[in-house]
């Protein structure tokens, strides 16, 4: 921190995109984005303590087209960060470092997070009685 000559974190643009590096930066980006999800969680829970009008307002903001778009992003970020986080825990345990395994587990994470995001949204529409 004191010296200006210390090596910096990787400059992403100088590397050829690969599933390993792309998922690594996506893990960070979704993590930072999910802080917004945490704040939405706090807003949603706390709105209920201010009475029915405040809670209904929160529900209609989250249910508007913009609210649903934000929730779609948050929910995808959540499932991705969850699945890739489990991948990280597996690495911490010493498992899955071979290149074919690394790529395969990355694909599994992407397929899982995309499909479960769609399923969650369908479940939400079903719970709301839309479908």
């Amino acid at each position: 921190m004191a010296s200006g000559n210390r090596p910096l974190s990787p400059h992403l643009q100088v590397y050829r995109p690969q599933i390993t590096s792309m998922l690594s930066i996506l893990h960070r980006m979704t993590g930072v984005g999910l802080v917004g999800g945490a704040l939405i969680f706090t807003y949603w829970i706390s709105s209920a303590t201010y009475g029915p009008e405040a809670f209904d307002r929160a529900q209609s903001i989250l249910g508007s087209w913009f609210g649903r778009l934000v929730l779609l992003a948050v929910i995808f970020a959540f499932y991705f960060h969850l699945a890739n986080g489990i991948r990280h825990l597996a690495w911490d345990a010493g498992w899955g470092y071979e290149m074919p395994t690394l790529r395969a587990s990355g694909v599994v994470v992407l397929v899982f997070s995309t499909s479960v995001t769609i399923l969650t949204f369908l479940a939400g529409y079903w719970a709301a009685g839309v479908i």
């Binding site: 009475g51 029915p52 209904d56 249910g63 959540f78 719970a127």
Partner: peptide, 16 residues
Amino acid sequence: TLWFMASAVFMVGADL
């Protein structure tokens, strides 16, 4: 989080 997600889905459109 998995428990919360499974529960919160049923709060879509719910009243207080």
